Computed example of a mutant assay.
Amino acid sequence: MSTINKICAGIVLYNPEIELLKKNVNILEKQVEKIYLFDNGSSNNNEIKSLFNDKNGISYFFNKQNRGIAYGLNWLINRADENGYTWCLTMDQDSICSNNLIYEYRKHLNDAKVALISPFVLNNDKVTLNEYKNMKLPEVTEIKDPMDCITSACLTNVPIVKKIGMFNEKLFIDFVDSDINCKVLNNGYRIIQVNTAYMIQQMGKGHKVKIFEWLFNKTHKNIFRRLKVATVYTDQRLYYSSRNSRYIRNTYKDHGKRTGLGFMVAYYCYFTLFYPKERNRIKMWKAIVDGFRDYQNIK
C-alpha cells in the first residue's frame, strides 16, 4: 500500500446504540486497517470497551468529559497523523456506509487539491436505497456549497486539514462540517462527492410530514422530498444550530445559501409547524433566540 494514501477510520462516540455501532464497525473493518474510537463520555462506555478495546485493528479511547464533536474529530485527525495515515474516514456512530466506500474513494486520491471526499447521503429516508440505485448520477459531483458535505463517511486529507486549521472546537456540535468545508474551499482545495458509494444516516429523529409526502408522491419534486421528513432535534441542538449558523455566516463570505438568515428562520418556522405536537414551541424558540444572541461567545 502506498504510504501517501494510507487510510484509517475514526468514530466519535456519545451514548451510541450498541447494535448499530457494531454494524458500523463491522463494515469499516473490512475496508480499512485501523479504526479509532473516541468516546466523549458515554454512560455505556464499559459495554463499548468490552466489545472493542482488545480487538485487533481497533483503538478505543475514553474521555470522561463530553468535549463535543469537533474536539473528537481533531483527536482522530491527530491520531491518524501520528500513525502515518494521510487519509482519515470520519464516521458518525449512527451512520452505515456502503461496502464499496473505500474502494470507490481510492480512485480519487491522487489529486493533490482534493481535501474531502464524501458519498451520496441517504438520510431519514428522504431518498431510499432503491431510489438511489435507480438514479442516473454522475460518478463524481464537485461540491461548491459548504452545506453539501457532512463529516460522516467523509474521507479527510489529514495534512490539508491540519494545514488549514482543523475543526473549530468552540462550535461543539452543529455546523462543524460547514466550518471545515468553508476553510477547505476558501483555501483553494476541492470537495468531491463520489456518487458510486453511499452512506445511510439518521439525523435526529425523523418525523414524517404527511402533506409533503403526499405532494412528493404526486409530483416527484425534489423540494417535497426534502420536506417530507422533519428532523426532530432537542432544544439544546436548536440552540447550537442557531448560534453556530450565525457564526458561519458572519465569518465566511461564501458560506452557502442554507446558512443565510432568511433560510434559517424559514427552517425553524418549518419545525414550528411540523414538529410533534408535544414539543413546547416557546422553549424551542427560546433556545433558538438564546443561540442567536450567544454566537459571539464562539470567538
Rank of each mutant, 00 (worst) to 15 (best):
L51K: 08
G84R: 02
N74H: 05
Q65V: 15
D54I: 15
N99R: 09
I35Y: 00
D94S: 10
L109D: 02
N26C: 09
E104C: 12
Q31V: 06
E33H: 07
S98P: 12
Y103G: 09
N78I: 06
Q65A: 09
D111N: 14
P16K: 05
F38R: 08
W75D: 12
S43N: 14
N100H: 05
D54L: 15
L21S: 00
V25H: 04
F38C: 15
K107V: 05
M91Y: 01
I27L: 05
S42R: 04
I77A: 09
L37A: 04
S118Y: 05
M91P: 06
K34Y: 06
F52G: 06
N26W: 00
G57L: 03
S43G: 12
V114T: 14
S59I: 07
E82S: 14
K22M: 11
E33M: 09
A70G: 06
P16Q: 03
L116E: 00
A115T: 03
L13E: 01
I11M: 07
I7S: 06
F52T: 04
W87G: 08
V12C: 08
K34H: 06
K64E: 14
I69P: 10
A70P: 09
D111E: 00
L116P: 08
F62N: 03
D92S: 12
Q65Y: 09
T90F: 07
L13K: 07
N78D: 08
L116H: 05
L101Q: 02
N78C: 13
K23C: 08
I102D: 00
N66W: 04
I77C: 08
D54C: 12
Y105S: 10
K34N: 07
K23M: 11
L109H: 01
Q93G: 10
T90P: 12
Y71S: 13
L21K: 06
S43L: 10
R79C: 13
N53P: 14
E104A: 05
N53F: 12
C88R: 05
Y105R: 11
D111Y: 03
N110A: 10
L37T: 04
I48D: 01
F61T: 14
I7K: 04
G57T: 01
C88L: 15
Y14K: 15
S118T: 15
L89T: 08
W75F: 13
Y105D: 04
L20E: 03
S59A: 13
L28E: 00
M91T: 03
N110S: 10
Y14T: 14
N99P: 11
A9W: 01
N66P: 15
E82I: 15
Q93C: 11
E19V: 12
I11R: 07
